[in-house]
Amino acid sequence: MAELFRRLGAVAGALVLGTVILWVLFLVVLPQLFMVDMSLRPHLPVPEQGGPADVRSLANYATLFANDAHRGIFLRTIFSAALVTVLALVVCYPVAYYLAQVARGPTAALLVLGLVVPFWVNEILRTFSWFLILSRNGLLNQVLMGLGLTEAPLNMGGVGAVMVGMVYAYILFMVFPLYNAIESLDRNQIEAARDLGASWPRIHARVVVPHAKPGIAVGCIMTFMLAAGTVAVPQLLEALPGGTNARWFTQVIYSLFFDGGDWNSGAAYAFALLVSCVIFIFVMMRVFRVGIADVAK
């Protein structure tokens, strides 16, 4: 800490230190701790709060695992988020590789710009655009009916629709980290490998992917975190015909908070979601052998 004051002087040093402490405490650490604390307490009417019945337990977490519907939604959310992540990775890898290593000059710049623009378009609007495609009078039904493939419009809501929407909404969070990582690979390395007679799959497996590891990890972490934690996509696509049976875990949390008013269970459910994301992050960091400084850049 002494360095801080030596570099910035007493006033600015104290301001910086104070601001950082306030930020870390009041915006980052304490809120999470309070959420955990709340998740451990029972849901009681106001007069009983702090009373003898207000003891900490894991009851709220037990509810999550005892309630078949909730547990099912939780597992489905995590599983779908993982699936979305894998899908996004598979779809994006060739594009990122092409943009980073094959495309040249203005074409490459234009294509990258083509990624930047939709990246900045609101998540809600991106989801809405799929809502329009999948809705009863939507494009897909119009086309299907126009081609005579179906008589009446199909109900397209459901888990599949939500996943399509999530891939679309978050795919760019996969493309950019991949692109940045692959771009920093020296093209000579690829050429050297090819000179040595390596086949394309081998070059990717032995040269490109190892180099792009941090990017892959970042892309996967961001995509998974966004997919598992989204409430925008399922909330919008729920309005599709047939969409009501595809509830997402975030929606369960939302209704616990605002329909049921049971903040305690809501906090427990939220914390369970957070823990899954943290586990996913650690697994990714482990698998790809990257540190936190590589991940958050």
């Binding site: 809120p31 309070f34 972490i221 975190m225 966004l226 598992a228 975030t250 957070l274 994301c277 991940v295």
Partner: peptide, 11 residues
Amino acid sequence: LTPGVILGIST
């Protein structure tokens, strides 16, 4: 790296 809903809830 934290889901947005969690940030909202904890805040």
